[in-house]
Structures are given as structure tokens and as C-alpha cells.
Design a protein around this nucleic acid. Structure first.
Lengths: 198, 198
DNA sequence: TTGACAAACGGAGACATCTCCATTTAATAT
DNA sequence: ATATTAAATGGAGATGTCTCCGTTTGTCAA
């Protein structure tokens, strides 16, 4: 039957589900123990007692694995953002932008290593499009810039501004400011706002 | 003798010099033929008729090799910048900043692939400090921002602003705008100036 | 049950980066 | 010339990513 077939296609095989969980648990453990960067896909496969092929069948690279590990937090982030918007509808767009940047920075601080894992493998694997996380954030920021720029004639810049803002918030840049320049998250937020919200 | 010893230490052995040139020639040829990304260090070593160890002895990674291949152009870039400054001393700093950004973008367009090669391996190899190229550029830009911010009380932001400006001009960001968003170099320059010179 | 089938598996192996170190070799001093 | 010596060499191999494909194994229908 159509139904049966569809259901079959959709449901995860029991052994697969077991392995999925095993991978997730193992990765989380190894990441916590040695740090995300130090742990190889091989190590995870071996420790999880599966073949490398099995691991790569599910996650095309370490980044996807990292992303799966923070998926819940990503959902929470966007819920927070939605909530923030609901509670601050009447605020000016520049302030709302700062608000959601603050939320994002908090998220980034919480999941620094895993987020870096995600982004690192995105650049390694030459993805043309950003991850869904960044696409969705980008959309939100573009909308806010559109509001901000509504006064001026130049609507077209919003996309560019949003791209630049997200570029500057990527791991490489953010962690450089954090670790080498020694700025606090709050200072970074302030400085970025000064540049991008003028 | 001291002199002899010093000279000995300094001069490159003839076979080494020969290999160096052989590597450079081979790399340039392979890069032009297949594109920088597609060519591995192994390939270069084999094609140059040397062992991988020899290649890595001279260049710790592909990025250093790429950097060596554009070294002359980097020198030219900074000469251009110096010349520009001499001829535009009396212009306002914001305009001078735009001028040197324009020079840098031209350089980046000329040596896009190799510059990408340099930057890619910098992120891969977790360098804490930027390459000398970026350090020097950074210094120049900081100085310009200091002039620009001289009017305002906030001198301290110049370092941050310069960092962000260079972040946004890195290969990943720049090529994304260039190839995916479809902006021209001139458009990118204009947009960046709008954001950073306000 | 059982048969069929697609999904899941696992490990060999292709390639890449990079290190280590026994051996070679060019430049200098004698 | 020859000995000395430190730089240079090269290739084996450690480690990592990722693919390919023959084999196994759940799942569903009959």
C-alpha cells in the first residue's frame, strides 16, 4: 500500500536509530573530554563501535554532526528571538536588532566550540550557501535593516549589510576578538552596533 | 672564520636554490592549469621531482607556498599604497581610506586564487596572528581610523573597526559577495565604505 | 513464517597533510 | 684533494577525511 510504503520510508530503522544515538552520545562525550577540534571522526566511529562508513553515511562531515548536537539549542534560539520580537514590537528597529544580536551572541558563547565546528567544516567543504541557521538569521536581519533603512531611499543595501554583520559574527572573527583582542561579549556587541547601526 | 661561517649560514645551497625554483615553477604551472584548490602538495612534489618532505621543509603548508608566489605583488601593493599616500596627503582620511581599500581590492582581484590559498590555510592551521600582509594592512587602516575618529572622543574603536573591515574583505566574505551575490568590485567597495565610513 | 528489498553497515582503500629521521650532499677549512 | 659538518633530501608512515561497494539486516507484504 502507498501508506505502508510511505511509513516505511519515513521511519528510521531500529538499528539505525540505535546507532544514531550511540554516535551522538559518543561524540558529546569525546567532545567534552578532549574538545571538539581534537576529536576526529575516526575516533568517534571507533569509540562508538561502528565503521567510518556508517558514521559518514549519517553525517557527511564533522560539521553536520556538530550541528545535530546543537539543533535543540538552535530551535531555542529562534524561539527566544520570536519571543523577543513579540515583547518589543513597538521598539525602534535599531534597538530590536541589537536585541537579537545580543541573543545570538549569548547562544554563540554557550555553544562556542560546537558552533566553531559547524562553521569550520562549512568553509572546508566549500558550501555555496550558508547553513540554514545563518540563512534564517540573515533573513531576520535583512528585515530589520529594511526597517532601519526605510527612512533613507536606499533599501537595497540591507542584504549587504546583513551579510557583513553575519560575517563579522562568525567564529573566526568573533573568537579572534574574544581571545586575542580580549574583548568581552558585551564590548563586542557595542562595537558592532556602533559600526552597523549608525 | 666567523665571516665564512656566517656567509655559509646565509647563502642558500645551490641544490636548494634549484629546488626552490623548481617548486615555484611547478606550482605556478599546476595552479594555472588546474586551479589552486585542485592541486595538492603531493602533486607539486611529484611533479617537481622531489620528496614530500623536501616540499614541506621549505613551505610548512600550501598557504606559505601561495604567499611566496605573490610576494612580489604584495611588495608592489604596499609600494602603491605608499605612493597613494604621498600623492593624497591633503585629502581627508575617509577618502584616503577608500583609496587604499580600492588598491587592496584591485590586488585581491588580480591574485584571487592565490590569496584564497593563503587565507584558507591560515584558518586551517589555526594561526593566532594574521599573516604579515594583514598585520601591515591592519596597521595602516588603524591609523586612518584614528584620524577619522580624531574628531570624536572615541579613539579606542579604531582597532576594532580595522579588524572588522579586514574581516569583511577576507576571501570567504569577499568572494561570496562577488560570486553568489553578484556584486562588482566597485559595488562592494561602495557598500563597505557606506558601512565603515559614516 | 517467509521472501523481497531497500536501508544500513563496515572496512578497505584512495588521497591529503604533515612528521620523522637515516642518508646524501654541497660548501668550507685544512 | 680531503675531511668536516650542517643543511638538504626523500620516502616511509602516522593521522585524518571521505568514498565505494559487497554484505548484512530490519521491515513489510503475502
Amino acid at each position: 500500500m502507498e501508506d505502508g510504503k510511505l511509513t516505511y520510508m519515513r521511519t528510521e530503522r531500529r538499528d539505525a536509530a540505535k546507532n544514531r544515538q550511540r554516535i551522538l552520545d559518543t561524540a558529546l562525550m569525546l567532545f567534552e573530554q578532549h574538545g571538539v577540534e581534537q576529536v576526529s571522526m575516526n575516533q568517534i566511529a571507533i569509540e562508538a563501535g561502528i565503521g567510518p562508513g556508517t558514521l559518514y553515511r549519517r553525517y557527511r562531515n564533522k560539521g553536520e554532526l556538530c550541528l545535530d548536537l546543537i539543533k535543540d539549542n538552535v530551535v531555542l534560539l529562534f524561539e527566544d528571538i520570536d519571543m523577543y520580537f513579540e515583547q518589543n514590537q513597538s521598539e525602534p528597529p535599531s534597538l530590536r536588532l541589537k536585541g537579537i544580536l545580543s541573543l545570538f551572541i549569548r547562544f554563540r558563547e554557550n555553544k562556542a566550540q560546537l558552533l566553531k565546528g559547524v562553521e569550520d567544516s562549512e568553509v572546508t567543504n566549500r558550501k555555496k550557501s550558508r547553513s540554514p541557521l545563518y540563512d534564517e538569521l540573515n533573513q531576520i536581519i535583512v528585515n530589520l535593516f529594511n526597517e532601519i533603512n526605510a527612512e533613507k531611499e536606499s533599501q537595497k543595501n540591507s542584504v549587504f549589510q546583513a551579510d557583513m554583520l553575519l560575517t563579522v559574527l562568525k567564529s573566526d572573527s568573533y573568537l579572534f576578538q574574544r581571545e586575542i583582542r580580549g574583548y568581552t561579549p558585551e564590548e563586542i556587541l557595542e562595537q558592532i552596533c556602533e559600526i552597523f547601526i549608525s
